[in-house]
């Protein structure tokens, strides 16, 4: 009996006449590092947006199964509800709260799932103070975890690309997720940052037990990190398997990797 954290069943997403996801069926095992690859416009980000409640697919079902909770149907839920259930994400072009410090960015994630208390906030009662302390401690922990402790009070817009990526991961982790969705985490980073990022992502899974779902263009990173891959093309899943199987798959070579297939994983 497999333990599926995400179960996407025959999902179709349309925008007017444009079919963005076409009868997509895939699943992620708990604790797995799963990657979704595919050329530009294949529907990868649409898939992420459907998994997090930003888009509402017209057909099919998406089931998220947290470790102890009842399975939740994602379609029809608002993004903040999906986040509360245990799904965190990062964005393709990193979306920080750019006028806030690294610390504040993470803290917003750490405290977002507690009940709001305007009265508590205005009076600053003991519960509010205790909550603040808990969030502060959690934030510092995460800053350490991603290696940004020294930059805690830097305004996030003045961080480097690599640091922003790590900050975004920390902000997502702060919400206490079961699964972390990473949308092209390596975009715009340099080779040494890429290496650090690979280590960090693996650390997130190994030390925090958070499953990872990854979209990435950088083949070297995907092939070294992912345990299983799905390949999307024109909104449909055209292949799935281990990195070795994908490398050898004729359809993938034709659709996605094209003539540079031989270079994949070795020199790209």
């Amino acid at each position: 009996m497999s333990d599926k954290i995400f179960d996407v069943d025959h999902v179709t997403l349309r925008f007017g006449g444009v079919v963005s996801l076409n009868d997509v069926t895939l699943h992620q095992e708990r604790g797995e590092i799963l990657a979704v690859i595919g050329p530009n416009g294949a529907g990868k980000t649409s898939l992420f947006n459907s998994l997090t409640g930003v888009y509402q697919p017209q057909e099919g079902t998406i089931t998220f199964q947290g470790s102890d909770a009842k399975p939740m149907s994602v379609i029809g839920k608002k993004p903040h509800r999906v986040s509360a259930a245990g799904v965190a994400r990062t964005f393709q072009a990193s979306r920080m709260f750019s006028a806030l410090t690294a610390f504040e960015n993470i803290k917003i994630g750490a405290e977002s799932h507690r009940g709001i208390g305007v009265a508590g906030a205005m009076l600053r009662g003991p519960k509010t103070r205790r909550d603040e302390r808990t969030s502060d401690a959690r934030t510092v922990e995460l800053l350490d975890f991603v290696g940004l402790r020294a930059k805690a009070n830097v305004i996030s817009s003045s961080l480097s690309y690599g640091d922003r990526r790590r900050l975004e991961i920390a902000r997502g982790l702060a919400t206490g997720p079961q699964v972390l969705l990473l949308d092209e985490p390596a975009a715009g980073t340099n080779p040494s940052e890429k290496l650090e990022l690979t280590t960090l992502i693996r650390k997130v899974r190994d030390e925090m037990g958070v499953s990872i779902l990854l979209i990435e263009h950088d083949m070297k990173l995907v092939m070294s990190l992912a345990e299983r891959l799905y390949v999307l093309n024109f909104g449909s899943v055209i292949a799935q398997g281990t990195p070795e199987e994908i490398r050898a798959n004729e359809k993938v070579i034709e659709a996605y990797l094209g003539s540079t297939a031989t270079e994949t994983g070795d020199r790209s």
Binding site: S83, R95, F97, I108, S112
Partner: peptide, 19 residues
């Protein structure tokens, strides 16, 4: 802080669980 987050980037704010 939640207000600031929404003001700056509503999509990102929602993704970290702010309604």
């Amino acid at each position: 802080r939640a207000w600031t987050a929404i003001r700056e980037d509503e999509v990102a704010a929602e993704s970290v669980g702010i309604n």
